[in-house]
Amino acid sequence: MRARHRPAAALLVASLALAGCGASDDESASTAERSVVGGGSKADAPGAAADAAAGAAGPKAGGPGDGGGRRLPATHVIRTAELAVEVGDAARALAGVRTAVEGAGGHVADESTERVDGDRVESTVVLRVPQDRYASVLARLSGSGKLLSRKADAKDVTDQVVDVESRVATQRASVARVRALMDRATKLSDVVTLEGELSRRQAELESLLARQASLEDRTAMATITLRLSEPEKRERPGEEGAPGFLDALSGGWDALASTARWAAAVVAAVFPFGAALALPYAVWRWLVRPMRARRTARDSGTSSAQGPGQD
């Protein structure tokens, strides 16, 4: 009989031990809350009570720490890609890209267009598309022209998403517990201390929520950076051969006009020197030379008249 009752006695002792542990934990949590609301002497009692309450409320059903019925989290991936495509008309290709992205449920996040070398256009656009349409949109953009370069990246951030979700849930429970303690606080010092603790935990919660929103946006929408460029225009080798009739006529006319301009420039440059030499020549030609001629003639007449008389 004693052997039969031993397993039952052992089970009874274990049940009493577990019940005693649970009662002691609940008593410690309630004691911490009473110390804050009833005017405990320690300054850090509100934070300790809130932490103890959050820890007591710790892993509930469905939380990351719940061992029963635990399901694996969904995979969260951040996808990015960079493309460089050469097209004949960048403006028309950009319009087609915008239509394709909007049709896939995405949008253009950023766009910049510039003219290069005076005759070519280059455009760079940042596209946001849903994850389930990422592959099809990327394939369509790659085939929109001559593919120059392509780079794709996928980063698994499942651990970060799960961690942030868990911390957000814990922080919300902590904020709720501090608010509950404020509702039961009777002393002004406790209210002031609890308000400071609530402000600190609320700020931490808002920071976690902002990080969670950023992760949700980057994992829900993929980012594609696309650069569209037009090819450089090159002259054909045959175009540099012998000129045609009109080219020759135009070249001859340009040469004649250039020669006439140079001749006019030479005449204009020599004219001052010619004018300076023409004045002395005119004086010599019309004044000095006639006078010398008359003098010579008079001298010759005088000598011929004196000759026969002397003989």
Rank of each mutant, 00 (worst) to 15 (best):
R4F: 13
A10F: 05
L12H: 05
L16R: 05
D26G: 15
D26E: 15
E33Y: 02
R34P: 04
G39A: 04
A45W: 05
G47A: 15
A56C: 05
A57T: 09
P59R: 08
K60D: 10
A61S: 10
G62F: 12
P64Q: 03
A93Y: 06
R98Y: 13
G106F: 01
H107E: 13
E114F: 03
V116L: 13
E122A: 12
V126H: 00
R128I: 08
P130N: 02
S142F: 04
S144L: 13
R150C: 02
D156I: 06
D159A: 11
D159E: 08
V161N: 04
E165R: 06
T170W: 07
R172N: 03
R179F: 10
R184T: 08
L188N: 07
S199K: 10
R200F: 14
S207C: 14
S207A: 15
Q212V: 11
S214K: 14
S214N: 14
L215Y: 11
E216H: 13
T225L: 07
G238E: 14
G238A: 10
A242W: 06
L246V: 05
G251A: 11
W253R: 01
A257V: 09
S258Y: 01
A263P: 00
V267S: 02
A268L: 09
V270N: 00
F271E: 09
L279E: 01
V283P: 01
W284H: 12
V288Y: 11
A293I: 06
G301L: 15
T302M: 12
G307N: 07
G309E: 11
Q310L: 12
Q310C: 06
Q310H: 10
Q310F: 09
D311Y: 06
